[in-house]
């Protein structure tokens, strides 16, 4: 073998060694890459397993459905509560209207009672009774009759919308007025609209009485144009008049009598002491 041939073989061996080294390095790289990829596969498998076990798409939907159901129930409860509050509100509004009406009625009754006992003058008492019947009850034609103790008849002492001469004296038990005097019970006609004026048979008869003793009768023949029926407060006013008007009239008469007697006695005393 020549020197040239020997150096040629040596070069090829060197070249082969280089290729072999590169092959070894490439194999090392492949092994490392393989290791890395296996690790990555393992990681993904673990992640997939944990996802499948805990929060899969089905369980998430289930949880959401459950939440929606809870919110629906909550909404229904809130709507029920709103409805309940609206009902209570309506109830309060209705009660307010009722209390307002009751307040007005009580005001009428209070004023009637206050006015009836505001004077001891007989004429003023009669005037106040007339005002109450006109302004609070709304009567246009009526008569106030008082019992004449001597004759035992009812005599008209005050009238509105008709002459006193039109109202004749009424005997106990005669007609509706006389029956009211006898029984002491109020009378109200059943049909206000078709009532025709009849002096002895009014549409309303209210006895004026102190306890069971009737001292007079209020007879109503016609109501004001806009008054087509009696309200609850009217009946209460009639009841009030039945008692308070009688005591007011009785008190005023007693006062007038005592004043007259006092004046007479004073006159005698003056005569005696002169």
């Amino acid at each position: 073998m020549t020197i040239e041939e020997e150096s040629g073989y040596r070069g090829k061996a060197e070249e082969f060694l280089q290729v072999f080294k590169k092959g070894a390095e490439f194999t090392q790289d492949l092994l490392r890459e393989n290791e890395r990829l296996r690790y990555r596969v393992l990681e993904l498998e673990n992640s997939l397993n944990s996802a499948t076990a805990g929060s899969g798409p089905d369980s998430q939907s289930q949880a959401l459905i459950q939440r929606i159901s809870e919110l629906e129930q909550e909404k229904k409860a809130i709507l029920d509560r709103i409805q309940q509050i609206e009902d209570e509100n309506q109830d309060f509004a209705n009660r307010y209207v009722e209390i307002e009406a009751e307040n007005n009625n009580l005001a009428n009754l209070y004023i009637a009672s206050y006015q009836l006992h505001s004077t001891l003058d007989f004429k003023e008492v009669l005037q106040i009774i007339m005002e109450i019947v006109i302004n609070l009850i709304g009567a246009e034609e009526f008569a106030l009759m008082l019992l004449d103790e001597k004759s035992g008849d009812l005599q008209a002492v005050a009238c509105e919308g008709l002459d006193r001469d039109e109202v004749p004296p009424v005997k106990l038990g005669s007609g509706l007025i006389g029956q009211t005097l006898q029984s002491g019970e109020s009378y109200f006609t059943d049909d206000l609209e078709s009532y025709q004026r009849d002096i002895l048979n009014p549409m309303v008869c209210v006895p004026l009485k102190i306890k069971d003793h009737v001292i007079g009768v209020l007879s109503i023949y016609k109501l004001l144009l806009q008054k087509d029926q009696f309200a609850q407060v009217d009946y209460e006013l009639f009841t009030l008049l039945a008692g308070h008007a009688a005591t007011a009239i009785f008190g005023a008469r007693l006062y007038s009598d005592s004043e007259r007697r006092l004046s007479t006695i004073q006159g005698f005393l003056d005569l005696l002491t002169k």
């Binding site: 004023i111 009637a112 206050y114 006015q115 505001s118 106040i128 005002e131 302004n135 609070l136």
Partner: peptide, 10 residues
């Protein structure tokens, strides 16, 4: 009318 005055005033 004192009754009316009192009622209106009320």
């Amino acid at each position: 009318s004192p009754t009316m005055r009192q009622l209106i005033s009320f």
